[in-house]
């Protein structure tokens, strides 16, 4: 892995509002720390940093960090914080490292070729793991691992064990049987839900209302029973209705009856 030079300036201002001023000034606030390095607040030129990152496939590479007024040191990018919408870099964490001590780092995986299972059999390439955790000296960090997927048929997969690693320099810490990429069978046709099911789409079950529901259910049953009783009674009344509908002799006719009679009078 190549080492590249990154220039920075020390900063004394810290906190939310000074950091905002630094960003408005075209710089990015950052920090350097490490086991053999005192924690130091720094600021980097935003344009330089963006151009610097554009030329690299990952954020895992060794930097020759030159902070004005301090000794140059080797560092790795630990974290880059970005704005959630604009994706502008808002903060950088740099980890000062020792070149003689082994470190653990995630190395990205790049896939090459188009699988047979995708091109000819209509399968779907599923890239599940995108980085492998390794342990090595900083000088031996691989830039990336390349995996050829051209020979994969439907149902085939490549695991961490298939990654070609120089075992004398690099120790792979990820599980050997961890699947990195697989070719899955094509998706089945979507089932169209019947329209009747939409009408049956009930409200979700309410967890906290279980007891109440039970009580309500009992109450509802009771009410339903009463209603049923009423309906039966209503039916009996309906049976009597014709007799009841005919007004008794001398009784006052209903309003409806009056309305029906009114045109006849004209």
């Amino acid at each position: 892995m190549k080492a590249v030079v990154l220039k920075a300036e020390p900063r004394t201002l810290k906190g939310k509002q000074p950091a905002g001023r630094i960003r408005r000034g075209g710089n990015v606030p950052g920090i350097v720390y490490g086991t053999e390095h005192a924690t130091q607040l720094i600021q980097l030129n935003e344009h330089d940093l963006v151009q610097f990152l554009k030329g690299h496939t990952s954020e895992q590479f060794i930097l020759d960090l030159e902070v004005t007024g301090s000794q140059a040191c080797k560092a790795l990018i630990k974290e880059i914080q970005r704005h959630p919408v604009s994706h502008r870099i808002i903060h950088v964490d740099l980890n000062a490292i020792s070149m003689t001590r082994k470190l653990r780092i995630e190395v990205p995986i790049r896939l090459t070729g188009e699988p047979v299972g995708v091109a000819q059999q209509g399968g779907v390439l599923d890239h599940m793991v995108r980085a492998v955790l390794v342990e090595c000296l900083p000088t031996d960090i691989p830039e990336l691992f390349v995996l050829d997927v051209a020979n994969l048929n439907i149902g085939d997969r490549l695991t961490v064990a298939d990654v070609k690693v120089d075992k004398s320099k690099v120790t792979v810490l990820s599980a050997a049987d961890l699947a990195i990429v697989a070719v899955a069978a094509p998706r089945a046709e979507e089932e169209v839900a019947p329209v009747a099911a939409e009408g049956a789409a009930a409200e979700p079950e309410v967890i906290t209302a279980k007891k109440e529901e039970g009580e309500e259910g009992a109450a509802a049953e009771g009410a339903a029973g009463k209603e049923a009783g009423k309906k039966e009674a209503g039916a009996k009344d309906a049976g009597k209705a014709p007799a009841a509908a005919a007004p008794a002799a001398g009784a006052k006719p209903a309003a409806g009856a009056k309305a029906a009679e009114a045109p006849k009078k004209k």
């Binding site: 979700p204 079950e205 309410v206 906290t208 209302a209």
Partner: peptide
Amino acid sequence: MPKRVKYR
């Protein structure tokens, strides 16, 4: 929609 909810 959720299958179960705490509150309606």
